[in-house]
Design a binder for these strands. Structure first.
Lengths: 146, 146
DNA sequence: AAAAAGATGCAACTTGGTTGCAAAGTTCTT
DNA sequence: AAGAACTTTGCAACCAAGTTGCATCTTTTT
């Protein structure tokens, strides 16, 4: 299985690969972690906020990316890797309350639950909040110095 | 175990029971489901938005309520029922993408997962999105008529 | 090349959340 | 009971994220 170019990946999802779209995709791929519109904006000063918004909206509609909610106040987006065929679930996310960074716990699959009769499930979000390893470490050092 | 009055419940959490705070609490208790600041505002026209905000902020600090994120764009708050002693987890929530209502699946506990070394977990959110029973039903009727 | 369709940038706007400040209400002290 | 000190509240103003209308520019189609 050879790696597809960004252009091919977009075409595969019926998204016309314009310059902006390729840039947004590449930025998301490069940074690897879930990003908000503003995060993308900060990394792509050449593109207007509204254009990024429209690109992301299109990406969501065409399943190029999906949205996740950490509690940061802004929605985060992440490239879909369906090669992992996450039927419904996908993986667990972790939000660091200290550095406000969102991590994908790629290895940790969301355990599915039985929901009551009548509810129809479309997607699942599993979000753990706490302190990430590097902030834990900083904390210890801080405490030792104090 | 007798039921505590709202005043007693607040005092128990070290919150001075002012008129506004009692009203906010009662509104949340009455409606039962997770509510946003705006939802509360709509139900309590007598109280200013900023006051509701401050009441909720205080409630969160004193563990009277806790926040949950459905993907609706606004944070929702829910009265803590720790009699159920949800160690970390608590129950699963369901967000209806059609009526934009958030449900507590009280009976459905969040299954906990093993997270990687170094991460320190403080809280967990499990959010299912889809269509709720009453919107499912409306949909069927709609389709039959069409 | 002209017409049609699509993508982009700018500016303006909406909404949810948040803060400063003065007025109103409480509590404490004398 | 009167006044000082503190707390709570409402108003207005502000901020950030998200969103939309519109004119312009680009691409595609004919």
């Amino acid at each position: 299985m050879k790696a597809l170019s960004v252009t091919e990946k977009l075409q595969q999802k019926d998204v016309k690969p314009t310059a902006n779209r390729i840039l947004v995709y590449e930025t998301m791929a490069k940074l690897g972690c879930p990003l908000s519109i503003s995060d993308i904006e900060d990394n792509l000063l050449s593109i207007d906020k509204s254009s990024i918004f429209r690109v992301i909206t299109l990406f969501v509609q065409h399943d190029v990316v999906h949205a996740i909610e950490d509690g940061s106040g802004s929605l985060k987006y992440e490239i879909c890797h369906e090669d992992l065929l996450h039927a419904l679930g996908g993986h667990v996310h972790f939000y660091c309350e200290k550095c406000h960074h969102t991590f994908c716990l790629e290895g940790v699959d969301i355990p599915l639950v039985q929901i009551p009769e009548g509810f129809e499930s479309k997607s699942v979000n599993y979000m753990i909040k706490g302190i990430c390893p590097s902030c834990c470490k900083k904390n210890e050092i801080g405490n030792n110095l104090a």
